[in-house]
């Protein structure tokens, strides 16, 4: 599990320092603090960023909105972001609101508020609402990562690192090369959101990363995965063999 990378765009050092402190304390990685529009773009494109925290006013101009607009234009590069502002001026808000999805946080804010705002931004951005706030789920699936709520903060797991997923009622055991952990997510949702060209169901309770398969022993209904993990292959899902042959 990796920590989530945050880019801060904020021109007031005192405030950015406070932000850095709070986020670091909650296991977020700060990839950088930009103080201008240009600076922000450089940092954004040169580092792996998961969430951006943007102050609307940079040096007295609403450059924060311009920055958000810029990164929203390219769909592949865009990332979840949160606006910070000390004013509820309607005109500014109307403009900021055009950058969808729109999340904002009023200054001054406390630790809980900023963490909440970040979670909301991720939820809204990946269009999977009510994940982190409810009791039913704790994971959001993007194309690259699983964002999992751990305590007060978020963690991420690279999807291609997953070897297989074992479903146990409303929990899912995620087994990667190095780790094994439990997330809260429904089976239907995980099946819907995972890339089906990589992940295949082999059993009522198993979803396997086909790229991690080492051997399929049909006689024993068994799949051997990298790291010597063994998974059952039920008759219902035996079609998987054809798919893998064609792949290899």
């Amino acid at each position: 599990m990796d920590s989530v990378n945050v880019l801060i765009v904020e021109d007031t050092p005192a405030e950015s320092d406070a932000l850095v402190q709070v986020l670091t304390a909650n296991n977020y990685t700060i990839v950088g603090v930009a103080t201008s529009f240009k600076n922000a773009l450089e940092l954004f494109y040169n580092s792996t960023v998961d969430i951006v925290v943007i102050d609307i006013f940079l040096n007295g101009n609403p450059d924060g909105i311009s920055f958000a607009e810029t990164i929203s234009i390219s769909p592949n590069a865009s990332k979840p972001f949160v606006f910070l502002t000390s004013s509820t001026d309607r005109k500014i808000f109307e403009r900021a609101k055009l950058t969808q999805p729109f999340s904002y946080l009023m200054k001054p804010f406390n630790e809980l508020e900023i963490l909440y705002a970040l979670e909301m931004a991720v939820e809204k951005f990946y269009a999977q609402p009510d994940v982190f706030l409810g009791d039913q789920e704790d994971t959001i699936i993007s194309s690259q990562y699983l964002f999992i709520k751990k305590g007060k903060s978020l963690k991420k797991v690279i999807i291609t690192d997953i070897i297989y997923i074992e479903v146990e009622e409303k929990y899912c055991n995620i087994i990667t090369e190095n780790e094994k952990f439990v997330i809260l997510i429904s089976l239907t949702k995980i099946l819907k959101l995972l890339d089906t060209s990589i992940f295949c169901r082999t059993h009522r309770n198993y979803i396997v990363n086909t790229e991690k398969i080492v051997e399929i022993i049909l006689a024993d209904n068994l799949i051997i995965l990298s790291g010597n993990h063994k998974v059952t292959l039920s008759d219902t899902y035996k079609d998987i063999t054809k798919k893998i042959h064609t792949l290899k």
Binding site: T88, D89, N110, E111, G134
Partner: peptide
């Protein structure tokens, strides 16, 4: 003042109350 002049941004959305209370109480 903002309320009187109706200058402030106002958008009614669905909100989970628990977290808002938590955030307020935190201070």
């Amino acid at each position: 003042a903002l309320l009187q002049t109706k200058q402030s941004y106002f958008e009614i959305t669905s909100i989970r109350l628990f977290f808002i209370v938590e955030q307020i109480a935190y201070n």
